[in-house]
Amino acid sequence: MKHDMKHDAELHTLTGAYALHALAPAEHEVFGEHLGDCPSCRQEVAEFSATAARLAGAVALAPPARMRDAVLHGIDSVRQLPPPVPAAGRQPMTFTAILRRKAITLAIAASIAAAAVLGGVTVRQNRLAEEARQQAQASERRLQDVSAVVAASDARTVRGRTPGGATTSVVSSTSRNRAVFMAAGLSDPGAGRTYQLWFDDHGAMRPAGLLTRDGATLMEGGVQGASGVGLTVEPAGGSARPTTRPLMLLALPD
């Protein structure tokens, strides 16, 4: 697909900004996912990180002696993390990884269905195949939409924290009339429940999509007219208006 090629080619050029920690959080995450799939970018980032370490070496400075004492005493009360579990699937998946995996599964489903169609089967299967293909494309497009909002020249970021300690940010772009919600550290909303996003249209809450875990989410609907963004826990499937007190309300930049 042509737009995918373009998307990819643009992604490859982000190695430098990524290694210098100069990307916006959502982009950093999207590119991190890309690194998992792209050995050449991975190699380049490793080389750039080693290059950056030389730049760090060039500004080395002796820290005060009290810092040594503080650190060497400090570690007494710090438990070391165990080595990472090698088995795949133990790592919590990010939103983009889920999207991508789903897209692949759907693409496989589509090709199976397409094979069935070639075997001379029904219109219904044909339609299923078409739906699967469209969904796979929609997932890819959402990834691109997230990147587009974050990279918009007028993108602005606001940050907040839920009472549970999750860090959240909203990147909004007036020119694209879209916003991306990002979260890290959200707890499981619980069985039969979901997180729901809202645009706060100066007091009237407008549903803006569901999420169940951390990651970057393209909010549904336009950012125009909204003065803020809210997050609530709702029954699975979401609600037409908030049924619980917001965990967080972020004011959007004017």
Binding site: A56, G57, V59, A60, L61, A62, P63, M67, R68
Partner: peptide
Amino acid sequence: SGIVFGLVV
């Protein structure tokens, strides 16, 4: 620590 401190500063 010198590299870490210098870079952070």
